[in-house]
Amino acid sequence: MATVTKQKSDVVLDYLRPGKKFPSVWCPGCGNGIVMGALIRAIDKLGWDRDNIAMVSGIGCSSRLPIYLDVHTLHSTHGRALPFATGIKFAKPGMKVIVVTGDGDALAIGGNHFIHACRRNIDITAILINNNIYGMTGGQGSPTTPAEKISTTTPFGNVEKQFDPCQLAIGAGASYVARTTVYHTPHMEKMLLAALEHKGFSLVEAVSNCHTYFGRLNRQGDAVAMLNLFKENSVMKGKASKMTDEELKGKWVLGTLHEHEATEFCDEYQKLVDAQMSKRG
């Protein structure tokens, strides 16, 4: 653990990659920067050796996040961050492996990898930044674009049903699942900390704003207006448990939504290796 108390901003600067050019690719006001800050602070609190951290992403705005951090970073192909991360973690189980992904990356093109990583309960923390739209390609509908909302591929309103990433992860066997938003930054830091400390597959859904496309197309205003929406329409899990389905309609339920103890994939495989190797002497 760090012994010197740093200013919050210093901590973030300390983890940014020397020589990496700024400004970032993100629009001013993008929630991705808030997630990056919270993630850095959570990692710093854990005091992890940054040479022992691998951060893996796919393709999309959120997937640009690892590039700025001074850890081992792998910007992979669209939807495939989890299997790349699985390879790293399984090869070097001692490494801390974090995946940063988005709603399109994790739930559309990468949906199959997502459920299988949950099922395997491999010790990876996935942060799914959910902005309900494809930002990088210019505002197309995603598996979390709400019903009737406008995107450039749902110009008359979305007629499709949505994935709830947290429910999907719980159903697929993830052993830690939490939701937070980019408005609730101290909460986000807490959820990330819990997820990173959890042994097994953990998912944190970070509800975020794409005011450039989602906000503009759906008349939700600028970044600040969208953050206010998150503030007004979020309910903590404890309070939500006392509310009716009707009352919860259109609300984000935040907090640790699910946690259970389960054997972890790399540990179980290691036991198998130990048994086979001792058999051979």
Partner: peptide
């Protein structure tokens, strides 16, 4: 397993080559 190596059956071939690259 007998030599301390690692085998994983992935969910498809896309994931397989991804895991191999990661490793």
């Amino acid at each position: 397993p007998k030599i301390g190596g690692r085998f994983i059956q992935m969910e498809d071939e896309i994931g397989s080559i991804a895991a191999v690259i990661g490793a």
